Simulated assay, not measured.
Amino acid sequence: MLQIGDIAPTFSLPDADMEDFDLAAERGRHHVVLYFYPRDNTPGCTLQAADFSDHEDDFARYGCIIIGVSPDDCLTHAEFRDQHGLSIRLLSDVETEVCRLYDVWQPKEVDGVKKMGVARTTFVIDKEGIVRHALRDVTPRGHAAGVFELVRKLETENANGNRQEQRRNA
């Protein structure tokens, strides 16, 4: 299981516009909020995606991008995005390879039936590609605000660390 301090596994997946997103390309450029969710157009997933979209500019001010991943295909993501006016990037993991890589593809029980599905999980990955926070079994309501505080603190810590480093080198 992926732990805090681990290097985030890199991957490349298509988004709702069928353009590839490569996590490795974000190293040195952005913090990444990588969140996994079960399905487009379910109440909790819609709430979570809309909340992240509503606050995307706030995250961007702290050098952070938001990426959602589910097993839905690109066309379903595009319809979901357009129907709800979402601005965040949604990636398609139809084969659940990245879900497995991040250990969020897990057994679930729904209405007494056991099956595999995505455990709602969010990872905060810093600009160096290190997992700084792993939030498992999250509740969609208010989740974006809590994640934003983690990103804000992360960027503040980085800024303070850089100032201390500059003082030591002076």
Rank of each mutant, 00 (worst) to 15 (best):
F36R: 02
L34D: 13
N41H: 09
F21K: 01
Q3E: 15
A159P: 02
R136C: 03
A119L: 10
N160D: 14
T122G: 07
A49R: 06
R168M: 13
T10G: 08
R81Q: 11
H77I: 11
H55Y: 08
V33I: 15
G63C: 10
F11D: 04
W105M: 01
D15F: 08
F36L: 05
D72H: 01
V32K: 08
E128S: 15
A49D: 04
R120K: 08
V94G: 01
F11H: 08
F123V: 13
A50V: 13
A78F: 10
I125D: 08
I7G: 06
L91K: 08
D6W: 08
N160C: 07
N169G: 03
L86H: 11
H55I: 09
S87G: 14
V138H: 05
D111I: 02
H30T: 15
R100F: 02
N162F: 05
K153I: 10
A60F: 08
D51E: 13
A145D: 13
R29L: 13
T121V: 09
V98Q: 02
E19S: 13
I88C: 07
K115I: 04
T76L: 01
A159F: 06
E109N: 02
V138Y: 03
F59P: 02
P43N: 05
D72L: 01
F59W: 10
C45F: 02
L47I: 13
I7L: 12
Y62Q: 12
R61F: 03
L101W: 01
Q164N: 06
E97V: 06
C45A: 10
N158E: 15
D82C: 00
R61K: 13
S53G: 06
F36W: 05
T121L: 05
I130W: 06
E165P: 00
K108W: 00
F11T: 06
Y35V: 11
S87N: 12
F123H: 06
V131W: 09
F123I: 13
